[in-house]
Simulated scan of single mutants.
Amino acid sequence: MTPAIDPNNPLTSYLPLAIALLLAGVLALLIVNLAALAGPKRPSSIKSAPFEAGSASSGTARQRFAVKFYVVALLFIVFDVEAVFLYPWAVNFRELGWFGYAEMAVFAATVVVGLIYIWKKGALEWEH
């Protein structure tokens, strides 16, 4: 006799998600282990050498980067995340009506003002 799934249990709706996550984990472990078992096993100095875009590496990996590099990276992430908010709004555009349009106009105006501010501050300039 198999136990029946209780439909009144609030965790019942999460069962498909748990099964999908379990299968994804098992598949990931399986792929990594199969690659380790079936992969090539003849290391050489040429294969172990670092490769970067076809040219020999130069310098040290411990060199310091300018702060501008990190500022540009953070700005990219901020504007990328802000662009992600546009997709659900566009999908629900008709249901949101004018209120949703006004909310997105305020959001877009804030983003544009931020972009103008960082542009005027010179945060997007690579060389000074």
Rank of each mutant, 00 (worst) to 15 (best):
V81Q: 11
V71N: 02
L15V: 13
I5C: 03
P10F: 10
K47M: 08
G25I: 05
D6H: 08
I5T: 06
P3D: 10
A90W: 12
A66H: 13
E82H: 10
L96G: 00
P40W: 03
G39Y: 01
L37M: 09
A90M: 10
N8T: 15
R64V: 11
F51I: 08
F85H: 07
T60S: 14
A36C: 08
F65T: 09
Y87I: 15
G100E: 00
A83N: 09
W126P: 00
V113Y: 02
A83E: 14
A61F: 14
A105G: 12
G59R: 05
W98Q: 05
K47F: 05
A102W: 05
W119S: 14
A4M: 15
L34Q: 05
P16V: 04
A4N: 14
A28N: 05
A108M: 13
P7M: 02
I5G: 00
E127G: 06
F85S: 11
F99N: 08
R64I: 12
P88Y: 05
P10A: 04
A36H: 14
V72F: 12
P3I: 05
V78T: 07
A49V: 01
S13V: 10
V106L: 08
K121Y: 09
T2V: 15
N8S: 15
V84C: 03
I31E: 00
E103N: 12
V91I: 10
F69P: 02
W98N: 11
F79I: 09
R64M: 11
L23W: 11
A20F: 02
R42I: 11
L11Y: 11
G114N: 02
P10I: 02
L21R: 09
V26M: 09
I19K: 06
G25Q: 02
G114R: 01
A73F: 06
F93K: 06
L17M: 13
L96E: 00
S13G: 07
N92F: 10
M1C: 11
Y70C: 08
L34R: 01
K120L: 15
Y101G: 15
V84D: 06
E82C: 01
A53E: 09
I31A: 03
T60L: 08
A109L: 09
A102D: 07
K41A: 07
S55Y: 03
F99W: 13
A105S: 13
N8P: 06
K68C: 03
Y70Q: 04
W89E: 00
L27K: 13
M104T: 01
N9F: 04
P7T: 03
L124G: 02
L15P: 01
T12Y: 04
S57D: 01
R62F: 04
W89Q: 02
A38N: 12
L75W: 00
Y87E: 07
G25C: 05
T60K: 05
F76G: 14
I118H: 00
P10T: 03
G59I: 01
G114S: 03
A109S: 13
T2M: 15
A53H: 11
V84N: 07
A53T: 05
A20D: 04
D80T: 12
N33H: 10
P50V: 07
A18K: 09
A35S: 08
L75P: 01
P40T: 14
T2W: 15
L15T: 10
